[in-house]
Computed example of a mutant assay.
Amino acid sequence: MRVLTFGWEFPPHNSGGLGVACQGLSEALADAGVQQVFVLPKQIPTAETDFPIVFADITEVDPKKRRTDHTAYASANATKETEAGCKRTDSSPKSDSTLLAEVDEYGKQATSIAQTHSYDLIHAHDWLSYKAGIAAKEVSNVPLVVHVHATEYDRTAGRTGNDAVEKIEKCGMKRADKVITVSHYTRSVVVEEYDIDPSKVDVVHNGIKTQSPPSLSPALQEIKDAGNAIVLFLGRKTIQKGPDYFLKAAERILQQRDDIYFVMAGSGDMEEQLIRQAAKMG
């Protein structure tokens, strides 16, 4: 099978876990014999791979090979959700206009890229790449799979999020032939909050590489050697990950036991808030 994959980031350039997840999944597919081309919106140094990486901002296409009758995202069967979520987002809020404009540009560039490769499946990771995946589907008539690593609903803990992002998410999932979510919880969000047909939503959990764990730092090793347990929070310190609940749970447990150490690793916009919360808890 040949797959044209659209991503947004790739190690060592990561803003979160999306790039790492894409790398792991792509490497596993390559090991399974799947031929793939991985597309990124901009040229950046990337980790060495066994599959080609294409950068959308430097791709050149022979004008003779370009279809002139194609209008990105246009379809006779387009739904209102498609028209609302997949059109250019020039009226986006100023704070998000740069990112949304980059997403739009990626979608336009994907039209050209899709016309230069042969593939049996299109795979688009998260909302940042959905417009690119849809554009590729429009010019190729090849099935589109969108991979939902997170949703705007999750990122805002169910509160009011960015309307433009939510529309792109919904459009991408509506237009996709198959939707993959990373958990059953995310699947329920996709079905219930985005009104996606449950028959086309499947769960594929993120995998891990089995290897010997690294040695603990001397300080943590000393804690372990003294017979204490260590509970680790590892992830972005954002509302989506619930680090404040980790602190609340730690406070309750430490009221009953004094042989457990709670460790938080990672960064995020809640970091200062969590430091103040931990200090207040004592």
Rank of each mutant, 00 (worst) to 15 (best):
G227M: 07
G227F: 06
N228W: 02
N228E: 10
A229Q: 09
I230G: 01
I230F: 09
I230N: 01
I230A: 02
V231D: 06
V231G: 05
V231S: 07
V231E: 03
L232P: 05
L232N: 07
L232W: 08
L232S: 05
L232E: 09
L232H: 06
F233K: 07
F233A: 04
L234Q: 07
L234K: 05
G235T: 01
G235W: 00
R236G: 09
K237G: 05
K237H: 08
K237A: 09
T238F: 02
T238P: 01
T238S: 00
I239M: 08
I239Q: 09
I239Y: 00
I239L: 09
I239N: 05
I239H: 09
I239R: 02
Q240M: 08
Q240H: 07
Q240I: 07
K241V: 06
K241T: 05
K241Y: 02
K241N: 07
K241S: 06
G242C: 06
P243M: 04
P243D: 03
P243I: 00
P243E: 01
P243C: 07
P243Q: 08
D244M: 01
D244F: 00
D244E: 10
Y245S: 02
Y245C: 05
Y245K: 02
Y245R: 10
F246H: 08
F246R: 02
L247H: 03
A249E: 02
A249F: 06
A249Y: 06
A250L: 08
A250Y: 01
A250P: 02
A250W: 00
E251F: 14
E251C: 05
E251A: 14
R252P: 07
R252H: 12
R252Y: 03
I253N: 04
I253D: 00
L254V: 04
L254C: 12
Q255A: 15
Q255P: 13
Q255G: 15
Q255V: 10
Q255K: 14
Q256K: 13
Q256V: 13
Q256I: 03
Q256S: 12
Q256W: 10
Q256A: 13
Q256H: 13
R257W: 05
R257M: 03
R257K: 14
D258N: 13
D258A: 13
D258I: 13
D258E: 13
D259T: 09
D259Y: 00
D259S: 10
D259W: 04
I260G: 01
I260A: 03
I260K: 04
I260V: 13
Y261L: 12
Y261Q: 11
Y261T: 04
F262K: 01
F262H: 00
V263I: 14
V263T: 14
M264I: 11
M264D: 14
A265S: 15
A265E: 12
G266C: 10
G266S: 11
G266K: 04
G266F: 01
S267G: 09
S267I: 05
S267K: 11
S267M: 11
G268M: 10
G268I: 08
G268D: 03
G268F: 06
G268Q: 04
D269H: 15
D269P: 00
M270K: 03
M270F: 15
M270W: 14
M270Y: 14
M270C: 12
M270L: 15
E271R: 13
E271T: 11
E271M: 12
E271G: 02
E272Q: 15
Q273C: 13
Q273W: 11
Q273G: 14
Q273R: 13
Q273K: 14
Q273I: 13
Q273D: 15
L274K: 12
I275L: 15
I275P: 07
R276H: 15
R276L: 15
R276I: 03
